[in-house]
Each structure stands twice: as structure tokens, then as C-alpha cells.
Amino acid sequence: MSEKVLAVLAEFKDPADLLHAAEKVKDQGFKKFDCHSPFPIHGMDDAMGEKRSPLGYVVGVVAVISVIGMFAFQGWTSAIDYPLVLSGKPLFSYQAYGVASWAVMVLLSAIVTVIGMMVLIGLPRFHHPLFYSENFSKKVNDDGFFVSIEADDPQFEAEKTKKFLESIGGKNIELVVPNEED
């Protein structure tokens, strides 16, 4: 079973080539593909036909809930659960609650942003078939630009997909197979 092909990987010369390749892979109808680069490339979402990340809506909802929640919590602690007159101020001094409500809103929104991002991009995931490729592991975070098409794409057929990537100008094309050494 160790010879099962998990993905096909092709390297491209520069960001422009990767962008063109992404369009062609999308037009061919592939779904489970990705374009890897050491930095985000402007226009890549359009080229790949990717939708905008939904993260903003999630964080927006959390922000609204946390600001209202913290305001209510301060009101409840100082006027209902532990009423104590301090400096002659009214128990429900709502003017004073702004700062902590705001701070808690920012805090929870930021935490949800980071956790939400990790959930959406599927990290942490310490092992991925693409890391079997030595060329990919060495270059993707340095100066390599890659297209990967994964084996669970409905259109995937190792040899045909490999030919297709060759035809759109990919170099160093690899069929990614598990590496015995690991």
C-alpha cells in the first residue's frame, strides 16, 4: 500500500506563473487543490475561485455578545449581587462600565479570531502528505511556488493530472507517495 499516490505537486517559477496556473487548474474543474507560496499573493483568491473567509462574521457576533455580556455583568455585580456604595456614586454607574466592557470585547474577539483561524485552516496539523516531498518541504516557506492537487479530488487520476500540470508549465512534478524513512 505504500505506493499509493496521495497528491500531485508541481512547481512554478514566480507569483505570476502561479497565478496563471491557479486559473487553469480552477477552469479544469479541480476542487481539492491549493497554491502554496512563501507569502500571500495578491489576486490569488479570485484566481482560485475562493470565497472570502467567514471569520469576520464569527468574530463580529462574539464581539457583540461579549460587550453586552460584560456590561450586564458589571451592572449585576455592583447593583444586585454585591451592592456597596462607594464614593457616593450610584450603584448602577453605567458610565463607568464602558472601559471594562470594551476591553473584554477586544480580548474575547482576539482570542476567537486566533482560534477561529486555526479551525478554518485546519491547524495545528503536524502531518500532511505534502511534507513527503523533499523539494516542497525545503522551498515552500523560502522561495518556492507550488500547485498541489490532492488525491481525493473526484477528477484525480495520477498520470492524467500529472500530464495536465506539465501542460500548464509546471516544473519538478512529483507524485507524492509516503516516505519509507519516517
Partner: peptide, 16 residues
């Protein structure tokens, strides 16, 4: 965290 630099990661990353 196993970062792979794929655009499907970058798009969420950039928004975050």
C-alpha cells in the same frame, strides 16, 4: 502548527 503556505490557509490567515 504544520503551516503549509497554501492559499486556502493564507486567505483565512490574512483576514485573521
Amino acid at each position: 502548527l504544520g503551516w503549509r503556505g497554501g492559499n486556502k490557509q493564507w486567505k483565512h490567515y490574512e483576514l485573521a
